[in-house]
Structures are given as C-alpha cells and as structure tokens.
Nucleic acid binder design. Structure first.
Length: 296
DNA sequence: CGTGGACCTGACTG
DNA sequence: ACAGTCAGGTCCA
C-alpha cells in the first residue's frame, strides 16, 4: 500500500522537477493532488518538490537520483554550454531542468510514435497503448499502466496498434517490437557504444530517422552530445544561430532536411555547444515552445 | 548524394 | 460549426 513519503534535501543541487517533467522529454507523467505520478518500468511512484526538498514515495532515493540525473553537474554543463546570451537566457529561465534517464524501450517507441504529430496526440496514443497492452498497476487508489513490453507488442495485431491512434506508425512499432523481442536487435548493446556508432545502429530500424535516433540517444542512453533537430529547434537555429553556424543553418532554408543536412547541423551544434549539446537543445526547445504558447 | 511526395490522424485555428 | 492546416519526421521512388 501507499507508504510514507520520504524527503531528499537538494542541498544546493539545482533541480526543478516541474520543468523537468513538463519540458517535453518524457510523456506519461501526470499531476494529481500536488504530486507527480509516473510509471518507470513496472514501477509506479510519486514525487513532488517544495523549494529545496524533493518528496518521493514508493521508490528509493538512489532511483530518484538516477532517474532525474541529479548526478549531472548542471553548473558545469551551464558553464560549458552557454556560449551566447540567447542560450544563457534559456538556462536562467528554466534553471534546474535536467535530462531524465528514461527506459530505452519506452523512449524508442514513444519517439517513433511522435513523428509528425503534435504533443497532445502523442500523449493520447501512448496512454491508449499502455492501457490496451500494458500491465495494470494500482497505487494510491489510482490505476496506472506499465509500458507494454516488446514481446507483447510483437504478438498483438498491427490493427490493434492502429486503434491506439498511432496511424501509419503502427507498422513501424510492430516491426521494431518483433526485432527487439526476437533478439535480432538489442537495445542494451547501444549503451557501451560511442554516440556516432549507436546512431548508425538505431537508424537501421524502420521508423527511426536521424531525429528519433538523437532523441533516444539523448533521453535514454545518456549521449549528451546528441542534438535532436525538430521543427522547433530548427526555428531557433534559424532565428538565433545563423551567425554562429552559418553553413548548417543555411541548410534549414527549405522544407524537410536531408540526412546529410541533418548530420551537418548536428555536427555544427556539437562544435558550438560542446559535449553537452543535448542540454542546450532541451533548454532551447522548451524555451521556444513556451515562448510560442505565451505569445498566443 | 539531393529532392519531392505521401503519409494516419487528431488537435488547433479562423 | 467545420474545412483547412499543422504536427517532436521518415520512407521511398
């Protein structure tokens, strides 16, 4: 049953739970009665932050620290990454945003399902997918669903995936589930690979292009140099970074990015923002999205 | 290598 | 209301 909440004192470690969970890197957390509830693997837990203290329940402290990457030296990351006023302003505005260490399988399927859709639609279909095929879990009088395993998604019909609102991505997800559950593709293997090699491996999967691969490497495999370029980030680069990486940004002029143009932008972003380029990406992404929302 | 369609579907817009 | 547009891109010819 619901156990008592425990307390973690941040003790000067910068962290902003709300921003970390709202910034769009992770999809299935929800807010209920002042707590954030999430399912990680087969495990439901809740967490909330009050000032310099993080309260958590149904999970141990090491898991909280690991999941929210409290071991990342955010101060160092800021110093190495903030090379101009624009990104510096984003870091100030959302200071404490941390990249979450997500489950690779859930992360992979989430971002395959995210291609060419808006966020509310993504949330909806991931919820539907979990509800239809994930293990039912109860906690605090609420019902949650674990993310469906590769084995399960490999067995169900493609049509039942389509019924979750996944559209044409259902086919990719089904196919990937089969490859992973059969052992033809091993996610774990990517852990020890350098970024570029892991990127090559991931993009072999159908439905996984340059951008999805970067998301998975950044959000689940801790390749902090991964720099996913989606429409929002492309907009930021075009508007604010043309003078820092002119050749790469010129490639953004047209519509869709070719693979080589994408690679060029990624390389330029890494050259400019450095080894933690992925952190810059996430702060800039969130900054751009919230700017657009408040402007309306 | 680079380019241009097509693509499921739901949310948002006017 | 309701048709048009747009979405955390990718695949394929």
């Amino acid at each position: 049953m619901a156990c008592l909440a425990l307390k973690l004192k941040l003790d000067g470690v910068p962290f902003n739970l709300d921003v970390t969970l709202c910034c769009g890197q992770v999809f299935r957390w929800r807010q209920l009665g002042g707590w954030w509830y999430g399912v990680v693997g087969e495990h439901v837990f809740k967490v909330r932050q009050v000032g310099n203290e993080v309260f958590y329940a149904n999970v141990d402290e090491s898991m909280v620290k690991r999941y929210f990457s409290l071991d990342h030296d955010l101060e160092r990351i800021r110093l190495r990454t903030c090379r101009d006023a624009y990104v510096r302003q984003a870091f100030e505005r959302f200071w404490g945003l941390r990249l979450i260490r997500q489950d690779p399988w859930e992360c992979l399927i989430s971002y395959v399902s995210a291609a060419w859709r808006n966020i509310p639609a993504i949330n909806r279909s991931l919820q539907a997918l979990a509800q239809a095929h994930g293990e039912k879990l109860s906690y605090d009088g609420q019902v949650f669903y674990a993310f469906p395993t590769p084995e399960r998604l490999a067995c169900v019909t493609e049509k039942s995936l389509r019924n979750c609102g996944l559209g044409y991505r259902a086919r990719y997800i089904h196919e990937i589930a089969q490859q992973v559950s059969s052992g033809a593709f091993t996610l774990k293997r990517l852990r020890g690979m350098p970024y570029a090699q892991a990127w090559d491996e991931l993009t072999v999967l159908r439905g996984v292009g340059p951008k999805v691969a970067d998301c998975v490497l950044l959000f689940a495999f801790e390749k902090l140099e991964a720099f996913p370029v989606d429409v929002w980030v492309a907009r930021v680069l075009k508007a604010h970074y043309a003078r820092y990486m002119p050749e790469a940004v010129a490639k953004l002029a047209g519509g869709a990015l070719s693979p080589s143009a994408y690679a060029k932008i990624g390389a330029s972003a890494r050259a400019y923002f450095g080894e933690y380029a992925g952190y810059a990406q996430q702060y800039l992404y969130h900054n751009e999205r919230t700017c657009m929302q408040t402007r309306k």
